[in-house]
Write a protein that binds this DNA or RNA. Structure first.
Lengths: 337, 337
DNA sequence: TTGTAAGCGTTATCAG
DNA sequence: CTGATAACGCTTACAA
């Protein structure tokens, strides 16, 4: 037999389909317990499952959220994703995930896809802040969305972001307090605003100690290990800096590798500070000093705010605070160059 | 105005809804180009998007696959997930992902959820091989599925698995060939069959060199770093082994950490072999020798076979071959104990 | 407390 | 080549 429908259930239980629909939706407590029992019994027996297509067609709700992230292979995102998934599922939503690879066209394509799938909302960790064309599309489709991790806090949309300026500041302050004066950083793509925020905070911290950051000490990376590994070579060979601040942990991994290759000892010859505090960080030897963000919680929070938006049309933004986690990779420079 | 429907398009273009539906589905090339143009133009103008609920209601297809994995935070799975997502999207499918945390009840819950969402198929990396109750449910719901990474190859369902026995064998052979005689291993949960497969291959390789694996040399881990870190302490302090084979890279990370803490030098005092070859592995210092599997490709392949099943009802299984990647963490023991 | 019937936006079957 | 029209399975006024 084909799948059971409420019609079948109704016939079997000797009631109308309306009644079945009612018990399905747990509405109308004003209903004879007998009838309810009868219906529930039949449903139970055949392990009835309502058809979401039919439901959605009427209610216009899919109980699905979309999550767009740059790349799940970047260890930052599984944590975020996990937070989003856990919160979503507790609230009976499923999650479609999409990897944009930081490409605008893929973002657009997925946005369309999600719209077509009639998702009830989108959690968006975009290439950067939303492009206006995307925002337009989203609002035209009336899909509530929330920006997470990437983007800017604006009053016309919800967001869950990190105080990246503060993160950069913490890193800078830590290094200058240790006595470092010659410091470089491996930043993210300049097109991404959080890169600039971190850089600004970092600069400010250095400036407070009268340390300047020359252009040659700012290396543009892509948040991946490989490029950081390669680009740090020059920097390390010249031996002109005593410390490096990598804008994420994965790039710090790259620096570790190059330092190892060149026989540079961490932290004796070189201090390193990372960003994110991804779980595997504690396995790096020596253990990495880093700026921690509570990625998992940010994911959960994003879903909460999204649901706020969805149910009450409330726009809300939260900014998380990063913290400095001092481990073994940072120490005072052995001598001032 | 509310969302456009094919009805609106039809009216606007001065044709019937059937015609609109036809151009939407690119059917019936036998159609006057004029009409087609006319309709397409209107669609373009209003950026028309068909309602998947209505579509699904009649076609019974959601264009969504479900992916159930233990935990996206375990670095093995993002790769798998990425492979699945890429292949799925190229074929116009979206992907709902679910983390089961290796708990049977969560698996069951998600299975139900996916069924309710009317997914067109499920890619399942279960706790272990499918429980019969799950298989029953799946077949009752007529949802095609494929097992990936975890499970057993059986002729009544498709699967994409790794030759774990061979993987274990490669690791064992490598270590014995280097001259190790006292070897331990940190395995996965015994309830998972791939653990036993790897162990068996490993044992066989050791046996070929007359090396035996005593129970005290088999440590049960959970594929996470933390437990491997703690459980390796005893092992390392006794200094009774010259090599350790960790059943995944993440646990190898844990061993690295403990070795570092205890001042044990890798590979001089201790050789380590991991499993998986996750991307960050190359950042471990010294670089980890490991058994590589092409996780990304396995993900892609899983989707291909799933679609085979879906479209042609062909059941097919593939077994991938692991390879040994020798890096810096394994070498001959400095002296035979 | 329960039932009837009108949609929801598509696709598919027939006619024309 | 094109168009009515009947499903698809559910929710929801509106009646009874």
């Amino acid at each position: 037999m084909r799948r059971w429908t409420i019609k079948d259930i109704a016939k079997q239980a000797g009631v109308s389909i309306t009644t079945v629909s009612r018990v399905l939706n747990e509405k109308e407590e004003g209903m004879s317990p007998k009838t309810r029992e009868k219906v529930l019994k039949v449903m139970e027996e055949v392990d009835f499952q309502p058809n979401q297509f039919a439901r959605g067609l009427v209610t216009k709700r899919s109980k699905i959220f979309g999550l767009i992230i740059p790349n799940i292979s970047n260890p930052y995102f599984p944590e975020l994703c996990r937070g989003v998934e856990d919160e979503a599922n507790e609230r009976e939503y499923s999650l479609i995930i999409c990897n944009s690879d930081d490409q605008s066209d893929k973002e657009k394509r997925y946005l369309r896809l999600l719209e077509e799938q009639q998702v009830d909302g989108i959690i968006f960790s975009a290439k950067d802040s939303l492009e206006s064309s995307d925002e337009e599309q989203l609002s035209r489709a009336k899909i509530p969305f929330i920006l997470v991790d990437r983007g800017k806090s604006e009053k016309n949309h919800s967001s869950v972001l990190l105080d990246n300026d503060k993160g950069g500041y913490l890193a800078g302050k830590h290094l200058t307090e240790l006595g470092h004066r010659k410091i470089a950083c491996i930043i993210g793509p300049k097109s991404i605003s959080l890169t600039n925020d971190r850089l600004e905070g970092f600069r400010r911290a250095l400036a407070e100690s009268g340390v300047e950051l020359s252009p040659s000490q700012i290396i543009e990376g892509d948040f991946q290990m490989e490029m950081a590994y390669q680009k740090s070579k020059d920097l390390l060979m010249k031996k002109e800096v005593t410390a490096i601040f990598a804008f994420n942990d994965v790039m710090a991994f790259g620096v570790y590798r190059m330092a190892h290759e060149l026989g540079i000892h961490i932290p004796r010859d070189l201090s390193i500070v990372g960003f994110d505090d991804i779980p595997l960080v504690s396995a790096l030897i020596p253990m990495l000093t880093t700026i921690r963000q509570d990625t998992y919680l940010m994911g959960r929070e994003a879903v909460k705010l999204l649901i706020q938006k969805l149910e009450n049309n409330e726009t809300q933004s939260i900014m998380f605070n990063p913290t400095l986690v001092v481990r073994e990779s940072s120490t005072s420079p052995k001598l001032l160059l």
